[in-house]
Write a protein that binds this DNA or RNA. Sequence first.
DNA 1: ATGAATATTT
Length: 474
Amino acid sequence: MLKSLAHCIRTQIPISVTFFFRSSSSSSYRSKYHNYYLRKRRKWPHPVYKARWHEKLSQQHAMQALRHQASSSPINLLSSLVESFALYNCDPTPNSYHFVIKTLIKTSQSHHISSVLNHLEKFEQFETPESILIDLIEFHGVRNEFQKAIEIFFRSPNFRCTPTVDSLNCLISVLCTRKEGLEIVPQVLLKSRLMNIRLEESSFAIFIRALCRYRKPKSAIGLLHHMFDHNFDIDGRSFSLILLTLCQQNDLECDEVMGLLEELKKLGFRLDRTDWGNVIRFLVKKKKGVESLEALSKMKLDGFKPDVICYTMVMDAVISAGDYESADQVFDEMLVMGLDPDINTYNVYMIGLCKQNKFDDGIKLLSSMEELGCKPNMISYNALLSAIYESGELGMAGYFLKRVRGKGAILMSETYEKIIYRLVRAGYVSDALDLLEEMMHKSLVPQPSTLEGIVSSLCQNGSVPKELNLLTDA
DNA sequence: ATGAATATTT
């Protein structure tokens, strides 16, 4: 009712304006609107408006009574509804049914819903708002009652509701949550076509989301082709989700994913900064240094400024690929772009230095980090420490270990293992045992191979069984 | 809104 009122007001305003400002110059134009205006004014607004106003007031009172009843004792809500509206001598509103259904759900009385629906079907005349049915479909969907959800949808005409794509979307997103629901979707689509409901972009977006959830990005791309062929607009979010899902597939090769990305672009995909980030992360995981550098420059060409994380990821990839020169370039570029490297960036760089056996530079980097207010963490220290021990320069390594400990650095399990392995190999068994003891003191569990190494070394030396006790305890 | 970093040649 409010809607038609609003419509009336909206249509009347321009009419009264033309009436005021147009004098007798064009009589046909004026009389057409003149009559329309008079008829409306004389026959319709006053009496009907007044009666409806009354009815609306009564319905408000009835609704109030129903709410009151429901809050004091929420049982027999259907009778409360009927009685309240009978008391005020007016017809129940769609809203009152919506309220009753919502209350039944809230108070765990959903077994009463079907009698409310039967009543709504048989005794009311109003067009049931689709929102009520959508709520019900959703309710049954959450409880995995797919058959009930489907029944509500196809029963809509009985409630004098012409379902639109909105309830269809609700139903299919409910069905798409589980495999057994997914299998029914085609039948539902066929039947809904007979009801003249056409799928929209939003429906396809639901299917695409479901396919991505089931890790079927290639099928989702198939759907995109279908949409493209039928001139549907494709939502950027669907593209992004498919790309993300492709990047998360471990079984796909880099070339294949890049090929599919080109296919997506042909279908109209324009990558945003998040998408580029996902592409770069994928390439880094696949250790594709060159490709990740390329992706970085394409990202820039697309007008996006990569952030510290993007630069760090690309640096990681080129370092994994052994391209230290590019790593330096990427690092410099990041600084030129005004970005501040953070602990992760420095650690990636540190790992690069370690791989090149540039231990002096690594030590310098540690102090630069301190100066720059980015304190090295366990990873910075452990990476450098392990690398120095692995190089076999045990003198330097021992000195560095002392210094690092002075800084309060905590050794990690893997670092202990590496140091112990190197010490044993070089014959410093008692140093190795000290570290082993320290490890166990911290409840770190050494690898069997580490223990074996120590034991065999002790046996060769014909050493004391006291330390062996320590080992058998582990 | 998001996403980045060690080590496994014993």
